[in-house]
Design a protein around this nucleic acid. Structure first.
Lengths: 131, 131
DNA sequence: AGCACTTTCAACCACAGGGTTGACGGATGG
DNA sequence: CCATCCGTCAACCCTGTGGTTGAAAGTGCT
């Protein structure tokens, strides 16, 4: 309902069937029944999956209602991609910086980390936003 | 249970709270209680989220049991990233090829698409695998 | 109009998932 | 030893979701 696009996109791809549909759609558009054919579930179930993908913005349905084609929508992928990429890169940066620090003080300190190494709780961070 | 890693990874990131945790962990390791502090839910709830992230392979818990740190695990992100990237690129290739075809036969055919433009159901494709 | 086919809606069922409360093991510190 | 904080497990509630069946629309063909 109030769920944001990113959540819906990730949730949509959390299902193997849906991922398979996306995989097949990446090869070319298809109608609902064409999509449904390989699976052992009902056409209605497939249709429901389709709705999920649609509401996640991963898929669109252009054309008047008959053999209504289903088309992949790339932009939603970009959303997830940039999200993942942003945080992945942050971690890697942190690793690089840590390696630098380790190289800096070589091997003088004891190997034990006393747990409270990161006392930097500077920003309140009381906001579960997405930035 | 029998759910594959990719499904778990996507499902894990489908939750805003979990995504926020990942975002914060990308800035540095943290303990369970440190992680829990900003949210208005119980520590146990946060712990559960943590378990989800852990079973998805997005996070690891090194160190003996005391202020057990939580650490981001980048490799799982690579999994999702490559998946997304693979299919995104396929669609883009298709678009390029389609543009090429359109350019090829410029404007001779009628503008109406009779719906059954893609009769190419050549490959059986009856395999819901992940490849 | 009538028939066949494809898409869509609605009601229902079983189960996974986010959240809670309650209690328990294990280290830390008086 | 006893208090305490942290992490963890378990039972339970409620909602969301994947799947079903059954029935309705919309369109194409004769």
């Amino acid at each position: 309902m109030t769920t944001d696009t990113l959540s819906r996109a990730f949730a949509a791809l959390a299902d193997p069937t849906r991922r398979d549909m996306v995989a097949r759609l990446s090869e070319g558009d298809a109608t609902v029944s064409q999509l449904a054919e390989p699976y052992r579930m009902t056409l209605q179930a497939v249709y429901k999956h389709l709705r999920v993908l649609e509401e996640a913005g991963l898929v669109s349905r252009p054309g008047g209602p008959q053999p209504r084609p289903v088309r992949l929508e790339v932009q939603a992928f970009d959303l997830m991609d940039t999200w993942i990429e942003r945080h992945r890169s942050r971690v890697e940066q942190r690793y690089r910086r840590l390696d630098a620090v380790l190289a800096e003080l070589k091997g003088d300190d004891d190997g034990q980390n006393h747990g409270d190494s990161n006392r930097s709780r500077s920003e309140a961070a009381g906001h579960p936003d997405e930035s």
